[in-house]
Design a protein around this nucleic acid. Sequence first.
DNA 1: TGGTGTGAACAACTTCACAGCG
DNA 2: CGCTGTGAAGTTGTTCACACCA
Lengths: 211, 211
Amino acid sequence: MKFSKIPEATITRLSNYSRNLEELLSENINVISSEKLATRCGVNSAQIRKDLAYFGEFGVRGVGYYVQNLLFEIKRILGLNKEWNLGLVGIGNLGSALIAHENFLRQGYHFVAAFDNDPVKIGKKLPNGVKVENIDNLEEVKKRENIEIGVVSTSAGTAQAIVNRLIKADIRAIINFAPVQIKVPPGFRVENVDFTVKLDSLAYHLTSEED
Amino acid sequence: MKFSKIPEATITRLSNYSRNLEELLSENINVISSEKLATRCGVNSAQIRKDLAYFGEFGVRGVGYYVQNLLFEIKRILGLNKEWNLGLVGIGNLGSALIAHENFLRQGYHFVAAFDNDPVKIGKKLPNGVKVENIDNLEEVKKRENIEIGVVSTSAGTAQAIVNRLIKADIRAIINFAPVQIKVPPGFRVENVDFTVKLDSLAYHLTSEED
DNA sequence: TGGTGTGAACAACTTCACAGCG
DNA sequence: CGCTGTGAAGTTGTTCACACCA
């Protein structure tokens, strides 16, 4: 395919396809058409073909896609053919739940470090074996453990200050659970996981009651 | 403004505007232009004016918007001028963290019930005073507590089955934390909060290293 | 004068429809 | 023959630019 910009929505969908292909694999289904996969993923079949076309030609005309092969290719595209090292900042209720969450591990995401500024928490060992470090040691620990993605689960008020420290430590990718708009310079990237926005959307639709 | 369909993205942005207006209010700023608010929210100023125009005329030409008034209007639009009752299903690490999370409360979202199927957990009292109920009592408790929004924090494997029960109990709005595509009939609505999709997106951008 | 509200231009994304290949 | 890959058409959402009004 000709060179062109890849929509962010395509990346999100690839993640979804990947999950569904894994299910298909575990159901011992070896080949699937874009039509069938589309139904399963809740999208249009042309959408799937277009999404894949950004990266190459993975199908066989008249046949469909080999599940195992397509899964491999999508994982390669997304960068999931390696393990990723995560550093968690903020060991509150949410932070603790995240580090205990087995879904991350299954996908190849590893928490290799945890930080807080509460002296009571610093030095404690978490259930996954990681010791809580003082946030002041961020740069040092980042180098030692090779943290690639920062996970921010502090309060809204401190999130930007924490992100600024992550930036200083040259952690280029950040997933933010605090309900604030985070600003980062070019070359850095933030993804927000915002429950309250989602709840607000539900509240809106319940209120304007039109389906 | 003439009648037209409202983009989902508009609703998401309203939620963002609302948050920023609350900050402005606490900074004792009384009036703000779409230009200034736009910078603050990280969007285009025409975008804000368009978004608001779907719902009415809230500004004053030559002046801008009165912060308090606009905040009130946006909250009314989103349906945040009332309290919302949440029912949590799945009292694992994540579920416990969600129910303890004070952000929900501040926004007017109240957990009024919690469910699990683990006999060890059923009957226990949670830190917020809510007793864990048997999931089999869903319909009864739903009526008693007037649950309006279901919060699903079970494993991926059981999420759809749980959602089916929520649908049967006529809980019309669901926020799903399990990494699966949930299917619901018309008239029901699911919002997904999916960490792994966000991580996959970060992994992709770190891998294809072009910023 | 200055900033809103909005039609018109533009840009991005999705779906259609079919040529082309296995 | 069936299903992919893809240009073209269609749809949706965003930004511009300016008339209009406090």
